[in-house]
Amino acid sequence: MKEIIRVEGLRKEYSTTVALRGVDMIIREGEWLSIMGPSGSGKSTLLNILGGLDRPTEGRVIIDGTDINDLREDDLSVFRRENIGFVFQQSHLIPYLDATENVMLAQYFHSIPDRAEAEEALRRVGLGHRLRHRPSQLSGGEQQRLCIARALINNPRILLADEPTGNLDRANTKMILELLKRLHTEEHFTVVLVTHDPYVSGWAERIVHMEDGRITGDESVTG
């Protein structure tokens, strides 16, 4: 498989703490990778830097040949909307827009909103009956499915998910992971999913373990 993300010597320091202490890794296109680790291990920081939401103190992140740290703020925003979709632990939906409009907002920042396409994306994640519902009218699982639809509407090459099931019960977690698995199989995007839950990481093809800002293990998961 072709390499899509290369991380070299990544270090991230905040004023009093060091979140990443020199991380190197390669992620291949179409791979489903889980980053596992306890709270404070630096996994979310790594994900934010991979997505260009944060800048490293040292090191490089090269995505499909582009060193994203060399990009100016606005160019990084453009790169992000062209290549990356996000799913967060908190759904981060716009409360005054309905489900379809929340998806259309992602289309708006990418290109041109298309209501029919947004509604189709919602049907694919099982929200065909919730098109006009506002986020507050959706359950936690439905909100996360809406976030997946929003993240994938622009056909990103990489989906970054930070504890996407962290607020869900086991049944909803399974539902979200099955959905992600199906979409991943159909669309072949790369998934980088951060979790501390072994059940969730077990759905990945590869698991990277982190502790205290370092990678402590890298294992492939077989069928």
Partner: peptide, 12 residues
């Protein structure tokens, strides 16, 4: 924050 995560530029 969400708009920016979705790819909005600061100017947007």
């Amino acid at each position: 924050g969400l708009m920016m995560a979705l790819g909005a530029r600061k100017g947007d």
